[in-house]
């Protein structure tokens, strides 16, 4: 009975995994299929990946996505880590309120945030005489950083909470100057958290569609926006090819994150 039950549980989990992965695998499969009309039987071909290389629009969108994601990673990780350190190491009035303010960017639907940014940026742009400033890669970057900041602060904060303040105090009693404490104790201890946060920030930006969609002016796009436009207009397996690449990159990143940061603790653990 027990074994039968365990078998059933395994089967159930396998079915859930099939549900999660089947469409992605099918989508990826068609990227390697020769037929432009998604016809079967399957014939292996890299023609759609080759076609990507000649698709200027998609390539440009791809570059935009990568650059925005990189800039977002640097900015959000820096600012977020600074704020996390302040929260983790100081007690001050308004701290709880400030931490609560991190939830709206996560909890409010992106649709609302994205359109609100469009409205506000447009007003600001018009009041300085450049309404065109409301949209563009800079606006998209502004938005992505805002969405990434809470994640960075949470991830770095979690790492910081795992380590007692006493470590830094101990270093000070041993004669380390504040700078030495920072460099030789705080930084090495925070590093895995910061790296994980940076990878999260990259993923948040690289996959972000809604905000980019509202802040992208005609002719300037990121990869998800370009894919969305293509899906709406009618598409070829080229879209499958680029989607496959994106999924592979995202999942690869997530695997790296998992190496650095396990939910609820560090892999190598300090029990």
């Amino acid at each position: 009975m027990r074994r039968f039950l365990d078998g059933g549980i395994r089967l159930y989990l396998v079915l859930v995994l099939i549900f999660l992965y089947l469409p992605i695998l099918v989508m990826a499969l068609f990227a390697f299929n020769r037929s432009p009309l998604y016809g079967l039987p399957f014939e292996f071909d890299l023609v759609w990946f080759e076609a990507l290389a000649g698709n200027k629009r998609l390539l440009q969108a791809g570059w935009n996505s990568v650059w925005i994601a990189l800039a977002n990673t640097v900015i959000a990780t820096t600012l977020g880590t600074m704020a996390a350190v302040a929260f983790g190491r100081y007690t001050f009035r308004g701290k709880t309120l400030m931490q609560a303010l991190l939830f709206p960017p996560i909890a409010i639907p992106w649709l609302v945030i994205g359109t609100a940014m469009l409205v506000f940026f447009f007003w600001v742009g018009r009041s300085v005489g450049a309404p065109g400033m409301a949209r563009g890669l800079h606006a998209i970057l502004l938005g992505h950083v805002a969405l990434s900041l809470p994640y960075v602060i949470f991830v770095v904060g979690a790492r910081l909470n795992d380590y007692p303040k006493a470590l830094e105090e101990a270093a000070a009693t041993l004669g380390a100057t504040p700078w030495q404490v920072f460099r030789r104790v705080s930084v090495p201890i925070l590093a895995p958290g910061v790296v994980a946060a940076a990878l999260f920030a990259f993923a948040v930006s690289f996959d972000q569609f809604v905000i980019s969609y509202f802040l992208a002016p005609p002719g300037v796009t990121t990869l998800p926006v370009e894919i969305y436009t293509s899906i709406r207009k009618g598409f070829t397996p080229e879209i499958n090819a680029i989607s496959t690449i994106i999924i592979a990159v995202s999942m690869g990143l997530m695997l790296v994150v998992a190496r650095f940061y396990r939910f609820g603790g560090e892999r190598s653990g300090n029990e």
Binding site: Y163, P164, A166, L167, E169, A170, A171, A172, T173, L174, G175, A176, T177, P178, Q180, V181, V185, I189, N270
Partner: peptide, 17 residues
Amino acid sequence: VHKRNIGMVFQNYALFP
């Protein structure tokens, strides 16, 4: 603190992991 020349042992030791 760092110029006081003290030695301190903390409750949970605070060894650098």
